[in-house]
Amino acid sequence: MYWYGGWAWMAFMPLLWIALICLAVWAVVRLTHGSSGGTARRGHGWDGGEHRETPEEIIDRRYASGEIDTDTYTEMRERLAAHRPGQR
Rank of each mutant, 00 (worst) to 15 (best):
3 W>L: 09
3 W>C: 04
4 Y>G: 06
5 G>D: 03
5 G>L: 06
6 G>C: 01
6 G>W: 04
8 A>M: 10
10 M>S: 12
10 M>D: 08
11 A>K: 07
12 F>A: 15
12 F>T: 09
14 P>K: 03
14 P>C: 02
15 L>V: 13
17 W>V: 10
19 A>S: 12
19 A>L: 10
19 A>F: 10
20 L>R: 11
21 I>C: 02
22 C>W: 05
23 L>C: 13
23 L>F: 14
23 L>R: 14
24 A>W: 09
24 A>C: 11
25 V>W: 04
26 W>Y: 15
26 W>L: 13
26 W>N: 13
26 W>R: 15
26 W>S: 14
30 R>E: 03
30 R>K: 08
30 R>G: 03
32 T>G: 06
32 T>R: 14
33 H>L: 12
34 G>Q: 05
34 G>T: 06
34 G>L: 03
39 T>D: 03
39 T>C: 07
39 T>K: 13
39 T>P: 00
41 R>L: 10
42 R>I: 09
43 G>E: 03
45 G>K: 12
46 W>N: 10
47 D>M: 13
47 D>G: 15
48 G>T: 03
48 G>C: 07
52 R>D: 05
53 E>G: 01
53 E>V: 00
55 P>G: 07
56 E>Q: 11
58 I>K: 13
63 Y>S: 01
65 S>Y: 01
66 G>T: 01
67 E>M: 08
67 E>W: 06
68 I>A: 01
68 I>E: 00
69 D>M: 01
70 T>S: 13
71 D>K: 12
72 T>R: 12
75 E>D: 12
75 E>T: 09
75 E>A: 15
81 A>V: 02
82 A>N: 11
84 R>A: 15
85 P>T: 06
